[in-house]
Nucleic acid binder design. Sequence first.
DNA 1: TGATAAGCGAGACGGTACGTCCGGTCTTGAG
DNA 2: CTCAAGACCGGACGTACCGTCTCGCTTATCA
Lengths: 205, 205, 205, 205
Amino acid sequence: MSLTAQRQTHHRAVPRAPGRPRDRRIDDAVLEATAELLQEVGYARLSIAAVAARAGTHKPAIYRRWPSKAQLVHEAAFPTEDSTLIPDTGNLRDDVESMVRGAAELFARPVVRAAVPGLIAEFASDPDLHARLLERFSERVWGAMRDRVASSTERGELRPGVDPSVVLDLVGGGALMALLTRGPGDLGEAWVESTVSILMEGIAP
Amino acid sequence: MSLTAQRQTHHRAVPRAPGRPRDRRIDDAVLEATAELLQEVGYARLSIAAVAARAGTHKPAIYRRWPSKAQLVHEAAFPTEDSTLIPDTGNLRDDVESMVRGAAELFARPVVRAAVPGLIAEFASDPDLHARLLERFSERVWGAMRDRVASSTERGELRPGVDPSVVLDLVGGGALMALLTRGPGDLGEAWVESTVSILMEGIAP
Amino acid sequence: MSLTAQRQTHHRAVPRAPGRPRDRRIDDAVLEATAELLQEVGYARLSIAAVAARAGTHKPAIYRRWPSKAQLVHEAAFPTEDSTLIPDTGNLRDDVESMVRGAAELFARPVVRAAVPGLIAEFASDPDLHARLLERFSERVWGAMRDRVASSTERGELRPGVDPSVVLDLVGGGALMALLTRGPGDLGEAWVESTVSILMEGIAP
Amino acid sequence: MSLTAQRQTHHRAVPRAPGRPRDRRIDDAVLEATAELLQEVGYARLSIAAVAARAGTHKPAIYRRWPSKAQLVHEAAFPTEDSTLIPDTGNLRDDVESMVRGAAELFARPVVRAAVPGLIAEFASDPDLHARLLERFSERVWGAMRDRVASSTERGELRPGVDPSVVLDLVGGGALMALLTRGPGDLGEAWVESTVSILMEGIAP
DNA sequence: TGATAAGCGAGACGGTACGTCCGGTCTTGAG
DNA sequence: CTCAAGACCGGACGTACCGTCTCGCTTATCA
């Protein structure tokens, strides 16, 4: 599908959908307006109507593109180019440090801070949504991270019996909990070092 | 309500507030109805009117008692008698194990699972609410847990330089993240053991 | 003691009710407050709570005395001493003129204008109330007027076949309709004369 | 709604209001439900929510169409097609008889009996409403009746000096007062004849 | 080149849920 | 039994906003 889409700009005739094509500028304007409003009013008070107004368009144009507020916000808060969380240092300690620091930095972004709690709530009440958004983004990142940790076992950098998923729970959950209970201000370099040292002592052989 | 309850525990005769006293049965019925509906429809779709109907009363009776849905849900999901999270074994490993297991068990309860993501979202957009609910419940529990970990330093059970707050972030955040990404089914005994072993290796001297 | 009490009102022995007697000043203050508020906000927006506040007392003290807003307003708008509508000139033309002028003057009073439409509405939805208020006031006045008209037949001042009740309908209804459709300003001397002349031509032999 | 209807009778093509058009069936269902409930519970106890429920819709759909209960009830009790009160016999006696009989018949309808007292009360406390409803309905009917009576003067059927407005006061007010004091049962043929004979004797030259 | 089909602007619609007002009742303690 | 004081229960209110729909127009591809 994405390949097909790429070809669309080629000279080859692709069975392009009939009818008037969408105005790409609306996509961009809506995503930008969403990101802005998210930081101004938060997830709960973010209304599609307000996004439409700020983007200079109307509600149906948004609903045509994103089936729900959650999907829109997810795309606005986590642009696909993002790969902050994927390090590849070849060394477990550095990888873990990258992950922890990446999580801290991710959660330090105002857009992300504004989006995450709302998305968490939506996931809980709509498992289907959870799956669809994981597919879009997290599976790639999260899976890559788990693989990286798992492969460390073979290199003897991980204590046998340590479940990579649990390690990721601790990395991501630690940052999330610190964010929720103490705010983004405490997620500084000291926090990163403290967390990494605990985790490395905990998982090294 | 909790204020009234506190007042009544004083041994001195309290002059009693003027006016007709509240019907305590409504308090109970509403909390029960809230817990039920929370599991049936989730936090977002939980309406005050529906709670009132199920409890056999009306909206104003609820608004008189709880200023917002968040406060109501908090009280319904975390009754004050709860002290699951407060162990006191005198031994750090056992304390940590109790905390981890307690977190897992807490998040395994359907009511809690239904309530937490919604509450997290509300906290994010209303810091004042966060403070008020912490005051009611978490401060006591969370503070006690932090004290317990902190006091271990003096007993030589904790590696110097380990920040007790970070330890709690990892305990609570790990459980939360596991719940959010993999559901409550994975929070079994294996998960507890794996988490405890990582944490203990990580924080022991 | 009981003798003393007896003398207070009647000469006859009245078994005075036990308990604290009502404060007559509250009766007066409430009636006065009702009359004032009636003119300020109208019947519909008149709340018992506001009356109580203005009278310097509380709602239960009012409900103890008057079972409903209608009864209270009726008493406030039509004090019992009133006998404006009862002429007795011995001459039909003068009697009718007195009635028409009395009706016009009655409806010209601001309190009455404010009270009547609301009372009419209450009568319609509560026939029992209608009866109770008629008993208090209208029966006496209305009956006396009808008797006066009826007795004119015997004196040969009334055309045979004219139903006294219909005459009263026209007298009172004419004033009411003029009030409702054109306001109190049009109920002046010209209106009285015009109405009386039509009625007298219509009912004289 | 009536405005929309009027617009559509223009022969010029009307550009049609933008947005989704109203569901006309809701208009009808609401008016019917209002008429029914009016007779069952009366004006005062008629709630918009109950009307909506009976009509199978919801409150906002009603508030979108009618700004107040009074306007809704007025339209439900007096459909615009109504022209009961407009006779045109070319003869004053017959015209007056038609008016009186029309008033009696109008007030004999259960819907009208249930609506009128409540509307009267609302008129009294909201003169603006009065004007708006007169514009919709009464002005046409009432004005036509007054014209008819007034034109009789030129034809020599009316005694000079008789004010047509006063005649209408007596016609309408008489019926209203009879309804209020004695109920609809007494507004029969005998009442009509008695009233007409008084009025005709009163206003004929 | 016209028919077909989807997108867009504009905005009202049907309907859910909200949070508030207030009417009439009840409770307590004092007189 | 009344009073002051005031909170209580519950019916009804009018509003905000959600996601959908309708319309007239525009923009592109297909036949």
